[in-house]
Amino acid sequence: MSEERVSTRSGPGVVLVAVYAVMALAATGRSVLQITEYFSRAPVAYLLSALAAVIYIVATVALARGSRTSWRVALAAILIELVGVLVIGLVSYLVPEAFPDKTVWSHFGSGYGYVPLVLPVLGLLWLRRTRTTAQRR
């Protein structure tokens, strides 16, 4: 009797991969622009933008691979993502002068329809759903 294997890239996961890919693209584009065009204006904010872009790329690839190792990589990336959007979101409200220009995570991702805030939560729920099968293999 073989048990059905739930990979992170099947079912709802494929939608998650697609949305992560879009976010990875948007965040990468934005951070490349910010760093090449006006880095001196807010180096810290723009480096965080670049970090966000890297996290989205890692999460996209890890979810799309759907192996046991990549499940763990995805978990780490999505946890960093959640902490990032919460911390940067909060700081951008408390210390607005630290963020003269918008980043993906500032104001809890309001510039992106709050997708950056919702996405890690959905990602973690999905990883929990796929955990047992992924761990067992």
Binding site: S10, G11, P12, V14, V15, A18, V22
Partner: peptide, 21 residues
């Protein structure tokens, strides 16, 4: 890209990808 993912995915979630795209 969306069509490729949707053709590979053989559940109703394939349409979620198309909608997101």
């Amino acid at each position: 890209a969306v069509a490729f993912l949707a053709i590979k995915e053989k559940t109703r979630w394939a349409m979620g990808v198309v909608a997101a795209g």
